[in-house]
């Protein structure tokens, strides 16, 4: 699914003394079934842009099109539906719910769909198998290593079979070995037809051969594409 951004602006604390313009007039297109990486230093606006694309926050102005549908001005309940069915998120700090098991964490996004419990469990276990996490499925997530936690976060992002996977600084909390494994996984997902958008300032990510397009950001603007 094609994603198109036109003249996107994001201003925090608008009209206050601490007003901050995080995104300035960004226009770009994210091609479907490809891996795009937003590259840039900390504070360049990558995560803010990713959040807006993923309907986690709204632009102050500008338009975001998902396919032919403009999503930037939709009411909250429509955004929820898009988050549930179209996007899967992998957060920088994974954002798993502490105290719950790996399996429960993975199934959380599917709860509001009211699927059959057995069927849901089977899907979750299949994902765990694909990502080599079967043996830790009943462990609480706080027992996991960084690499395992990230793979759980990917499984959670994929449980509702979204068309687009969004990953914010996916290798920031991983060692070299786990980072390489992650890029391999991402490559496989892309081959299976997913559109992938990542943010990163790690050369291992944006210089990876699996990445199709790199967009460089600086100070809230797109510099090089």
């Amino acid at each position: 699914m094609r994603i198109e951004l036109s003249n996107i602006e994001k201003i925090f604390n608008r009209g206050r003394h601490n007003e901050f313009r995080a995104i300035r007039d960004v226009s770009m297109e994210i091609a479907p079934n490809r891996i795009t990486c937003l590259k840039g230093a900390s504070g360049s606006g990558k995560t803010t842009l990713l959040s807006m694309i993923g309907c986690l926050s709204r632009p102050t102005s500008g338009r975001i099109l998902l396919g032919e549908r403009m999503i930037s001005g939709l009411p909250e309940r429509f955004l929820t539906d898009i988050r549930r069915h179209t996007f899967g998120f992998v957060f920088q700090r994974f954002n798993l719910i502490q105290g719950l098991t790996v399996l429960d964490n993975i199934m959380i996004p599917a709860y509001p769909l009211g699927l059959d419990h057995g069927e849901l469990k089977r899907s979750a276990k299949l994902l765990l198998k694909q990502f080599g996490l079967e043996r830790v499925s009943n462990n609480p997530v706080q027992w996991l290593s960084g690499g395992e936690a990230q793979r759980v976060a990917i499984c959670r992002a994929l449980i509702n079979d979204p068309g687009v996977l969004l990953a914010d600084e996916p290798t920031a909390n991983l060692d070299l070995k786990n980072s390489r494994e992650f890029m391999e996984l991402i490559g496989n997902l892309s081959e299976s037809g997913k559109t992938i958008l990542m943010t990163s300032h790690d050369p291992l990510v944006y210089e990876s051969p699996v990445v199709d397009e790199v967009v460089e950001m600086h100070d809230g603007q797109i510099m090089v594409k």
Binding site: L56, E76, D81, R83, R84, F91, I108, P112, A157
Partner: peptide
């Protein structure tokens, strides 16, 4: 925040 991000409605 996590629940909303992964697709839970405000009502849920």
């Amino acid at each position: 925040g996590i629940l909303k991000a992964v697709g839970w409605e405000t009502g849920d």
